[in-house]
């Protein structure tokens, strides 16, 4: 059945919605906005052609530079942080105990709760004087706890932490599902060979979970570049842009300053980098993902 004409026609039919949708609702708007990245366009005004003006400006702008670095830093915390935590939680919950359903639900809850509403609670937790965190640290004897959200060193990690908290339950569920595909007899065999739990984790669990891990990693990478609401409600990108990531900067340019051309140019530089990164990942996929 490999490549008969019938299969090709079926494939084409199956992919028809994807192709049409990709064309009309993805590629046309993307091409359009890509073209706009060569214009100076206040949304409510007429566009003027500026050639590579927006791109040239971005490459010479210290602000854009800072924002790109912030984004890389954010992803560097968020992607491994959320996947690592999700993996630990998934492994702990993959035990068939009845209570696991409760914990799964509890950990998944942040993912479905209104961001603005819960972020308000986080602002209080991080509050310098009245915050839960600093009062707890004070109780432990820490005197000079930082002003988390107003401190250039801590603001971005704080935003990343809340983002991890929000999404980790989602990744946990995906990994839990993957864990259930692992044949229990493999553990038994490893134990007979004298493997300790930690060894079993690295020798049995992780290798057999690579397919799920790869999927979750790409997903987390995409999400790490789209953070907006949490930043908005937690730090507003501050102090002094310390927690402004690209998605937030794009939003600021698009919908507060209405510089749509500039926002588009920023986006396409980001897409170029991420696209390259993702495709590289797929290229190296075979090296570490065990396709069952």
């Amino acid at each position: 059945m490999r490549s008969s004409r019938k299969v090709r026609i079926t494939a084409l039919l199956f992919l028809a919605p994807t192709i049409i949708g990709l064309l009309v609702f993805r590629l046309v708007p993307i091409g359009w906005s890509f073209a706009l990245s060569f214009y100076d366009w206040k949304i409510f005004d007429t566009p003027t052609f500026v050639g590579f003006g927006n791109y040239a400006h971005i490459f010479s702008s210290p602000t854009a530079y800072k924002v790109f670095l912030n984004s890389a830093y954010f992803s560097a915390i968020y992607v491994p942080g959320s996947i690592g935590l999700a993996l630990v939680l998934a492994v702990l919950l993959n035990n068939g105990l009845r209570s696991s359903a409760f914990f799964r639900g509890a950990f998944f809850l942040p993912y479905i709760t209104s961001t603005v509403a819960v972020t308000l609670a986080w602002r209080w937790i991080f509050s310098t004087k009245f915050g839960l965190l600093n009062n707890f640290l004070g109780w432990l004897g820490v005197d000079n706890a930082p002003a988390w959200l107003a401190d250039p060193t801590w603001a971005l990690p704080a935003v990343a932490l809340v983002s991890i908290w929000k999404d980790v339950g989602f990744y946990m569920i995906l990994l839990l599902a993957g864990l259930q595909t692992i044949d229990p007899t493999l553990y038994e065999a490893a134990r007979v060979d004298g493997a300790k739990p930690i060894q079993r984790f690295f020798k049995v669990t992780v290798p057999l979970l690579t397919r799920s891990l790869f999927f979750v990693m790409i997903l987390a990478l995409v999400r790490s570049t789209q953070t907006f609401e949490i930043t908005y409600a937690l730090t507003n990108g501050g102090p002094n842009r310390a927690s402004t990531t690209l998605a937030f900067y794009v939003y600021q340019n698009a919908f507060v300053e209405f510089e749509m051309g500039y926002a588009a140019a920023l986006s396409y530089i980001m897409c170029f980098i991420l696209g390259l990164f993702t495709l590289t990942n797929f290229y190296f996929r075979k090296r570490w993902v065990h396709d069952g």
Partner: peptide, 25 residues
């Protein structure tokens, strides 16, 4: 472009706002 250089709403921690915060802190 006032919202850009002064800072307003989601740009509230950048521009002049962001720099003044640094001084006040």
């Amino acid at each position: 472009n006032w919202s850009g250089w002064r800072g307003y709403d989601s740009t509230g921690s950048s521009g002049m706002n962001g720099e003044l915060d640094e001084v006040l802190n």
